[in-house]
Amino acid sequence: MEGVWQVGLFDRFRQSLGKTRELFTERLASVLKRRKIDEGVFEELEEVLLSADVGFATCEDLLLRLRRESKRRGLESADELLPVLRGAIVELLGDSAAPVAESADGPTVILVVGVNGAGKTTLVGKLAHMYRAQGKRVLLAAGDTFRAAAVEQLVAWGERAGVDVVRQKTGSDAAAVIFDALQAAKSRGIDVLLCDTAGRLQNKQHLMDELNKVYRVINREIPGAPHEVLLVLDATTGQNGLQQAKVFREAARVTGVALTKLDSTAKGGVVIAVARELGIPVKLVGVGEKIDDVALFAPEDFASALLSADK
């Protein structure tokens, strides 16, 4: 996975954040211009965090840490608060970016799950390209057998990335497609099998049951698999992201979050709440529609971009 975090990618991400960032930095600057730390400073920081979709409870937690730390260190000037806040965010996110799991022997199976429109198929396409670029043998499984043209969409990505797609007709059993793909992956000596799934709202019990079945099929066919279950979270999602993480984890043992559409003006702060409350780390970020617009998640960079104190 080395080298995936290409130089320039983060800059692009930051650029794309530029627009709101201006407003954001402006606001923060106005907060920090005050010489002394007072209630007003905390109130404005609260607004900043809330507007980043951090959520009420996590925001309270962060501010509490900030207050405690500020008292402990005897901080007086408001602009000393920002690095502390950034540190607190990184702490909640987990200090190190957890690597995407790989299987020691046999194919690494990555299951990609999430609600409708989160960007699962696009992410699978990008990951296919990424692993291909690393010289891996990659296979895709078109597990979204529900949405019209989802299979065709994945096939188009497969062509772009130069990898095969195991598929059946729309309307067929998703678990059966995945089963076929697992057999193919084993017999063809595939390194990475990426399994796309249909978008589903987490409150639809029957769809979550279906996903659980897919999970169990994978687990039965290759012990230890899936090695990674990525919940694709749209950065524009609000607090419902937390509920998504909770329920998808129950159905499919989610091991990491892929935060997509981070090139939008949304800041994706709900992942802080997800990490804080559920301990699920963020592993990948999607920052555009192009095939190489995917990167490993870096908590420090994320927190910096969120608060953008550095320039």
Binding site: S51, D53, T236, T265, K267, V270
Partner: peptide, 12 residues
């Protein structure tokens, strides 16, 4: 607009 959208709904 996705009903699950967060704070950014306003700028969108």
């Amino acid at each position: 607009v996705d009903a699950m959208t967060g704070q950014d709904a306003i700028s969108v």
